[in-house]
Design a protein around this nucleic acid. Structure first.
Lengths: 332, 332
DNA sequence: GTGAAAGCGCTAACAT
DNA sequence: ATGTTAGCGCTTTCAC
């Protein structure tokens, strides 16, 4: 910047004014500065500026996802990137891998880079370790799961309601012998989905005490084995609800292995690519990651811009998509 | 840091030494400093440090992908994150959307944040606009496509070889009436795949002049329509090669609509989730995005560490995965 | 409309 | 083993 100022024959502050589009520079001076910038191939150092900038803005935010390689996370990331990029804010992204240690390490790394805000899917049981940052008023938005131990904005899917819709759908198609295949119960969303499902079934007058509830299925293979066992049991269910993508995949495999895929109904939580191309098409409760991303970005920007309303949780509704597997009726 | 030094009753440089694990601090002093840090909840400002650090390292790099929401990109991103994170380097990620303007804007945004390196999937026909940075010796690695106009490391899939393997596989299964469905020809990888496919077919003595080659299929629906038209033509192919995921999906839809999915062979470039669950399973030429990510990170780190060997292109081999659709034989 | 000076938080170089 | 000083590139403040 010094060099630009020297070459243009002006003061350094004038160069700063031109670059940041501040008022109070004559058109002639502006041109001189612009020419010098072009000639030197100069580019503003955003990070150095942040040292002195009002509020120390770095124009960067941190995004913590389950994994950047997971399509659900990818959609959220994408929506966020677009909203923030329009404001000149760059996004640091990182994967948590369901590891609370990693969660803290990554947060520390991002805070060390003085991000203007944090958007995260919490893993740790408790986010109380973020209290110092929270009271420093660091903008933060929690995604998918509500924070524990700090009071902050959150954007979540209506997990219980969505799972309830799945139950209602299966009941409506005449099923009474249902089963629930779920993810690890230390994950809040998994618990919510189970609760919503069971409440809906119970509310319909069907006793849930005998209903098979299999938790802690965290990968495809575990889900497949659990589904096989279930389907080979003495009194197998006529309809299955799977609470998550990998569980759905495992269940699909089990159903196909047993040749039961056209006989046993299946509704999965979470949509996935090619669900409509399966045989039968897979009925799902679809989440809307792009809407979650958009909403989160909106809240984060509002907080960055000084919004100090009490924190709220925003709910993005899920949607039942019928594709065949959920409309199979029980045998007569 | 000043505050920490004051509280611990030491000089500011001593605090710096402790934090950066430099030698020359007595254990007693170290403890005093550590206590003060804990008490004040102090955290090092990495960006401020970069201003003075040798080589001005910011400990951040920029990653430019087709889209962070695309699973192939996600895998690359993930591998990169892990390799770089182990070195304390954070990753800015952004999506290019096949838009050369966006490519330049994002690069500018990242350079303005003084990233230590850049990993990118080039879109623009020419990366000559990066010459200033390149000659400034900014570490950069190109992914998936080789750069044009600057000489830099690249990590790519063996597109032509992989497509050739697909052709050979179909020929081996007795097909002589093949067809090629491809992506936009302004994309280097698409051209390579077409070339590899046609060369292999031609090399087997089958005239390629009559072989249907349909380019510029950039989405699923375009691919579906092209495949329908092809299959409804007077002399339809008995085997199809699709050069990319979305093209494969569109082709699968067309085959299914016509009830031809068990009769016409299909090999697609790029693996995808649930490919084995389709009916029949879809034979693919799989790329290895995680290996591409690992290699790119390795090269980037080497360049950051001062490696100044002449730039090279690293090839990550693709792999044929047989699942059924590619092993269908032509009608007798 | 323009510029000089101070200082953000840190690390390099050089004391002591 | 520890501290002091200068200065990275910028924006703020204030003076002209």
């Amino acid at each position: 910047m010094r060099h630009v100022a020297a070459l243009a024959g002006v003061g350094i502050k004038t160069v700063s004014r031109v670059i940041n589009d501040e008022a109070g520079v004559s058109e002639a001076t502006r041109q001189k500065v612009l020419d010098a910038i072009a000639q030197l191939n100069y580019q503003l150092d955003v990070t150095a500026g942040s040292l002195r900038r009002a509020g120390r803005r770095t124009l960067s935010v941190g995004l913590l996802l389950p994994s950047v390689s997971n399509p659900f996370s990818g959609e959220i990331h994408r929506a966020m990137e677009d909203a923030l990029g329009a404001r000149g804010i760059a996004v640091f992204a990182a994967s948590l891998d369901d590891d609370p240690k990693r969660e803290q390490a990554i947060i520390a790394a991002f805070l060390g880079r003085r991000v203007d805000g944090l958007v995260l899917t919490p893993i740790a049981k408790n986010q109380a370790y973020m209290i110092p940052e929270h009271s420093r008023n660091l903008p933060m938005v929690f995604i998918d799961r509500e924070p524990v131990g700090v009071d902050a904005d959150a954007v979540v899917t209506d997990n219980a309601v969505g799972a309830g819709k799945a139950a209602a759908h299966l009941l409506m198609h005449g099923h009474t012998k249902l089963a629930y295949l779920g993810d690890r119960t230390d994950i809040q969303t998994a618990r919510e989905r189970r609760r919503g499902f069971l409440e809906e079934v119970g509310g319909a007058g069907i006793p849930t005490s005998a209903l098979p509830v299999i938790d802690d299925l965290h990968d495809e293979e575990a889900a497949r084995r659990a589904a096989l066992e279930l389907l080979n049991s003495e009194d197998p269910p006529t309809a299955i609800f799977s609470s998550q993508n990998l569980v759905t995949f495992g269940t699909m495999r089990a159903l196909k292995e047993l040749g039961a895929h056209k006989r046993v109904a299946l509704v999965g939580f979470d949509d996935f690519t090619l669900a409509d191309m399966m045989d039968p098409g897979v009925t799902v409760i679809a989440q809307h990651p792009e809407r979650i991303g958009v909403k989160s970005a909106e809240r984060l920007l509002a907080r960055i811009d000084g919004d100090d309303q009490p924190p709220r949780t925003y709910v993005v509704p899920s949607e039942l998509i019928q594709r065949g597997s959920g409309e199979i009726r029980p045998p007569a």
